[in-house]
Design a protein around this nucleic acid. Structure first.
Lengths: 214, 214
DNA sequence: CCGCGACGATACCGCTAGGTATGTCGCACG
DNA sequence: CGTGCGACATACCTAGCGGTATCGTCGCGG
């Protein structure tokens, strides 16, 4: 059911058409790694190409510009998030729904650390790109839609009497903050086994759910 | 009692010595505004100078490099935070202490939006500056010390039986996340009166305290 | 066997922006 | 009264980097 999110990238040819999809993904991941390690500005196209043992030509064969790569990263992350979290919002109990959503969200962040970190930290660099501001609006819509997922669950929980009564939209801000902040401190050590990830996720989730309950 | 934080910038001459302090602050604020609006990378020194109706010469008269300005912003924000929040950690009741600290933290963020936002978003750009990595370590220490403020209060609350028992340091991460995330969504509208700020702060604080309590 | 298009390399351009070198003006101070 | 220094302005240098134009090459369908 990710249709609504994925299909509205048609008007603008974000990606060069007729290209190999796997090849494009290679560029995308390499670029993401570079952006994470050096930041969007400091990471050069040549550096991305070097990481693949190639040259600029290969990169520009798949993407029209550096900014386009960044946009594609954003689209990638948002699609992933929405597709995995949206189905969990329907659980009978609002508290359970929120718990599942938060858990999944944090897990995605940890498993795709490079992507999510870049998507969050480079928001500024993206939104300052005057040209193609139509895409920025597009991204903004999806962000809003994702936030609405949590707002809706919060409102439901308030009506059901499980959650404290306040402005749901305002409450959603620090809530998403505690989830997204994971990108800022979580490190992908070698010794980090899935167990500790689950452990981290549960601590965060307990905090989140406790923060909205009565 | 901000001595411990402020005094350890002596070893490295971060700022050019013997300069007028107010003049330096003008540069600092102008740069902060530019960094916030355009991002650290896109904001040029010329643009900062233009904002002051001056030229590069004036900027480089006070700071040796662009990165130094960014470092000074970080120091400025961290000093401000630490100085205002640290005294609140001593309240008898751990829950009250945490409440006060969180409230103050969010308030500082809102009142100094440009500074705090830059300090958070440009963390990457800072830590990637290979040279002067000694200062980065310095910043890291202060960050850690600030985090310890909250960790200590959390541990105290757990011993007193008010807070849920978990890894205090891990719990502090999403906690600070919900506070710091304010920089990402709060906007300084004209109509934003102090009342709505207080309103926002209370919603966030309720969420935070609720998240750690039993 | 041919040509066409995906794939990629090479060479090159142009501009932006950080940094420096140098000059100028005014004021405090001996 | 000159002289040193803070507080800037001006002019200039230069490296890095995004983007383009062009040319090889390999595989595949007709």
């Amino acid at each position: 059911m990710t249709k609504t999110v994925q299909d509205n990238r048609q008007p603008v040819t974000r990606v060069r058409p007729g290209r190999n999809e796997e090849g494009r993904l290679e560029i995308l991941t390499a670029a993401t790694t570079s952006f994470m390690q050096l930041g969007y500005a400091r990471a050069s196209i040549d550096e991305i190409a070097d990481r693949l043992g190639a040259t600029k030509g290969r990169v520009y064969h798949y993407y029209r510009s550096k900014a386009d790569i960044l946009m594609d990263i954003h689209r990638h992350v948002l699609d992933m998030m929405y597709a995995e979290v949206e189905p969990l919002a329907d659980a009978e109990n609002a508290a359970d729904a929120l718990r599942d959503m938060a858990y999944r969200h944090v897990m995605i962040v940890m498993k795709n650390l490079a992507f999510t970190r870049v998507a969050l930290l480079s928001t500024t660099d993206l939104f300052m790109n005057e040209k193609q501001s139509d895409f920025v609006g597009e991204i903004g819509k999806v962000r809003r839609a994702y936030e609405d997922l949590f707002v809706t669950v919060l409102e439901r929980g308030m009506r059901q009497g499980e959650f404290r009564e306040t402005r749901a939209r305002l409450l959603a801000k620090p809530l998403l903050g505690s989830l997204n902040w994971t990108t800022m401190w979580y490190v992908d050590r070698d010794g980090t086994t899935p167990e500790t990830r689950a452990e981290i996720a549960e601590i965060v989730v307990d905090y989140v759910v406790g923060g909205v309950r009565k």
